[in-house]
Simulated scan of single mutants.
Amino acid sequence: MASIEFVVIEAADTAAADSFYTAAFGMGGRVRVRASEEPTTGFRGFTLSLVVPGPATVDGFVGRALDAGAVALKPAAKSLWGYGGVVQAPDGTIWTVASSSKKDTGTDTRRIDDFVLQLGVADVAASKRFYVDRGFDVAKSYGRKYVELGPPSSPVKLALYGRRALAKVAGVSAEGEGSHRLAVGSDAGPFTDPDGFVWEAASS
């Protein structure tokens, strides 16, 4: 059963990126940074998502990210599905922080229940088949709209959206080109998926 061990964010200023992620999210080994100046513009086709216990924890992570230099794309607010917000890190990576709970206990636990890599793909059904062929189990599947992959124990979960749908969730235009500025460390790698996302062996 395939799983994701970590993600690599590629940034022009690695020291600044490391400092931001330590201050904002404290992700430890699940998020790594390395240098890259590959051209990239607009939406990079992915987001990283923190699923947390409640609204106070959402506000805590969003607040620390903004204090560390992130830009708010969607202020934290209630929705039909819960409570969440979207920020963009100084290196350009988009992060969502969300909870299925709308009840605010007033306690910021700083606990992360799930860390999810969300990929915006051209064809959700085709990408689902691609990843299943590489050892990923399907946890949830909603036709051509949304798929969750990977075991519950995976340090990083994987979700597939249509590219435009994911951009809408993030609050940005779906237009973009150039490097994704992302690599995925997994026991399923190395390979490049149909949308150009690069996967590497987790031991590398």
Rank of each mutant, 00 (worst) to 15 (best):
I9L: 15
A11D: 05
A16N: 04
S19R: 15
S19W: 06
Y21W: 12
T22I: 04
A24Y: 00
A24R: 01
F25P: 01
R34S: 12
E37I: 05
E38G: 02
T41I: 11
T41F: 13
F46C: 05
T47Y: 01
L50P: 03
G54Q: 10
G60A: 06
R64F: 00
D67M: 09
G69N: 09
A77T: 13
G82T: 05
G82L: 08
Q88S: 09
A89T: 11
T93H: 11
W95V: 04
T96W: 01
S100C: 00
G106K: 09
T109W: 01
I112T: 09
D113K: 13
V121G: 02
V121P: 05
D123N: 15
D123F: 10
D123V: 08
A126V: 13
D133S: 14
G135L: 08
G135W: 09
D137Y: 00
D137E: 15
R144P: 02
V147H: 05
V147R: 03
S154T: 14
L158T: 07
L158F: 10
A159W: 02
L160K: 05
Y161I: 05
L166M: 05
V169A: 10
A170P: 06
G176T: 06
E177A: 13
G178H: 11
H180V: 08
H180D: 03
A183M: 11
G185W: 02
A188G: 10
G189T: 08
T192A: 09
T192N: 00
G196F: 08
A202L: 05
